[in-house]
Design a binder for these strands. Sequence first.
DNA 1: CGGGGACTTGATGGTTGTCAAGAAATGTGG
DNA 2: CCACATTTCTTGACAACCATCAAGTCCCCG
Lengths: 214, 214
Amino acid sequence: MLLEYKNVRQRERQSFKKDAIIFRQGEIAKYWYEVVSGHARLCHYFGDGRRQVTHFPAAGDVFGFEHGLRQFSAEALTDLVLIRHEPLDGLDSTHSDEKQAQSQAVQRALESTERNLRLFSQPNACRRIGAFLLDFGNHSGAGDRIALPMSRQDLADHLGLTMHTVSRSISQLVKRGMLAAESPTHLIIADRPAFEEFVGVDWVEPDSHTRTSA
Amino acid sequence: MLLEYKNVRQRERQSFKKDAIIFRQGEIAKYWYEVVSGHARLCHYFGDGRRQVTHFPAAGDVFGFEHGLRQFSAEALTDLVLIRHEPLDGLDSTHSDEKQAQSQAVQRALESTERNLRLFSQPNACRRIGAFLLDFGNHSGAGDRIALPMSRQDLADHLGLTMHTVSRSISQLVKRGMLAAESPTHLIIADRPAFEEFVGVDWVEPDSHTRTSA
DNA sequence: CGGGGACTTGATGGTTGTCAAGAAATGTGG
DNA sequence: CCACATTTCTTGACAACCATCAAGTCCCCG
């Protein structure tokens, strides 16, 4: 059937090994991506060697909507499975359901980026890292256990800090009893109320429309 | 004609006086907006009184795409004219051109937010403010003259700094000869090459697809 | 067991926030 | 149009925070 053939052409499943490059900053943008499993890392590289990690997309997240040239590189933080989507830009009315899906995907990406921005209103490193960890933990949905697939340097480049400050801040959160460190890559929220109080719960109502609370 | 009637219903021009509220954080989101003239200010308010200014939309910019509750307030920074759009979410194929326009608008909003995020990779206050001023100046297209409709506090809440640091940093940029201060609200780029060098030109290729360079 | 990378921690200096005061700009009423 | 009040902006002094430099520890992997 013709429709199915077209669908196959438009959505392709792809696998990447840890540290593989999905696309590079500066390339011509051809597709957008949806994470099936694993974690990716989106980085903007500056001329002077600095790097801004803009996002750590996880299962369900989408990225790569720019027109023209890629503004950032996408890299596999862990082994990774993606669905690659062809953008649907035309005015014709074919695949209107796919277009609908794409439009909603861009919107989700926008909301996610805006949440990211809010991290930077945290007045100091501890709160900023705390806010990130809380959000990341909630997003990965493993209760009070937070598995960090990224390095301290990745965190630093995401939060506008140094590796050292990230490390020190996590240590301090542990010392203050809000977190417990199972290993460098596995943290546990030891006192959730205090932790949430510390970073300042401020959501108007977090994603009430996307969350299908059982 | 029915179609025209519907179009009238879907796009409405609205005017706001300086400091008027367009919508408030926490309200149910009904429309998205496009700036015709003037400047708006988008702020997320935190429970503890902090405020994050996420964007200063100018003519041509779009905002307010969230589903569910407003995650931020929109305020008129100056006298302001907007076009209010009704979101088109359905799967039916009516108004497919409008849907197309909306989809592209969300995408522009996303790219703009991502550019914003990159300001925070600037390692110090001077560069961060410099990068903002350069971008804001380019965007308003008045050559080397930068008119700032927002207060120092607005800038501070946008850049994650204090009013004092913003003021000091601008003074320093003036002292170093990159900027000249005509008045607190009107700056002039006195040495553009040095200024661009200072903030670090890093774009892969800034908006080549949206810019119709004469 | 030994090597290398990632992470943590200490010491120090630079940058920014805080507190405070003064200067400039804006608005108001006479 | 000027005098005055109010707000905004600027600047100084000091303390807190973070980046830098450096060393040491842990962990992974050969």
